[in-house]
């Protein structure tokens, strides 16, 4: 059982245990769909939808699940919500669904989600799991937004599809290619570690 206050349970996902910058989980979608802010945001929200609902269900039924089949049960629950997210995107946001393509079904194997079920929801109350999932989701969305903003501004000269760089700016094509994702993530991780180091020194 976690001993943190409810507030800490929420905020830990934003920085201390941020899924991308601190736990290095869920890197596949983080790298793959962050070429444009709209894609990063859609992927973040779809993941948040799946994470919050799965955490709620797992925390509610954890007593009935024998330890030996817990991973299988978690995956079935997660996969169901992913399929729901995929269908909803295809039905109501066809353009985004087309853009994200196979990466929506791949949310099933996003380690952030299974990791939270295993590390938190299966051991804590429904309300705590809900707060934890919300915090982690927000942390994940923010990380994706940070990456996709940098990549879209440098790679296309736009932000959310709007031109932000003047006509003098020549887009760095590498930033919207896979290599740009690795470069950006590396730099951001370095900055995150540096800030963490400074905070520790001050304590």
């Amino acid at each position: 059982m976690s001993t943190k206050s409810i507030g800490q349970e929420f905020t830990k996902g934003l920085w201390d245990e941020n899924p991308v910058f601190r736990q290095l989980l869920g890197l596949c979608p983080t790298l793959a769909v962050t070429g444009w802010v709209i894609n990063g945001l859609a992927m973040g929200l779809a993941t948040a939808f799946v994470l919050v609902l799965s955490s709620l269900v797992v925390a509610s039924i954890k007593k009935f699940i024998p330890n030996q089949v817990r991973i299988a049960s978690f995956i079935v629950i997660i996969a169901s919500f992913v399929t729901v997210a995929d269908r909803i995107l295809a039905a109501y946001f066809p353009a985004i669904s087309k853009e994200l393509g196979p990466y929506v079904p791949l949310i099933v194997v996003n380690c952030v989600i299974l990791g939270r079920q295993e590390a938190f929801s299966s051991k804590n109350s429904v309300s705590r799991s809900f707060i934890d999932a919300l915090g982690m989701s927000l942390g994940f969305v923010l990380a994706l937004l940070a990456l996709s903003s940098i990549r879209e501004i440098l790679g296309s000269g736009t932000f959310f599809g709007y031109q932000v760089m003047g006509s003098w700016f020549k887009p760095w094509i590498i930033m919207i290619l896979p290599a740009g994702a690795f470069l950006t993530l590396g730099v951001l991780l370095g900055i995150a570690l540096h800030i963490e180091y400074k905070i520790k020194l001050r304590k």
């Binding site: 009935f64 079935v76 729901v84």
Partner: peptide
């Protein structure tokens, strides 16, 4: 183990069938 997995599978399956039909 068998009962729990079967029940989870059945519930998920029928839930998905409903969502599938609706969309």
């Amino acid at each position: 183990m068998v009962v729990v997995l079967t029940v989870i599978g059945l519930i998920s399956g029928s839930f998905l069938a409903t969502v599938g039909m609706l969309t």
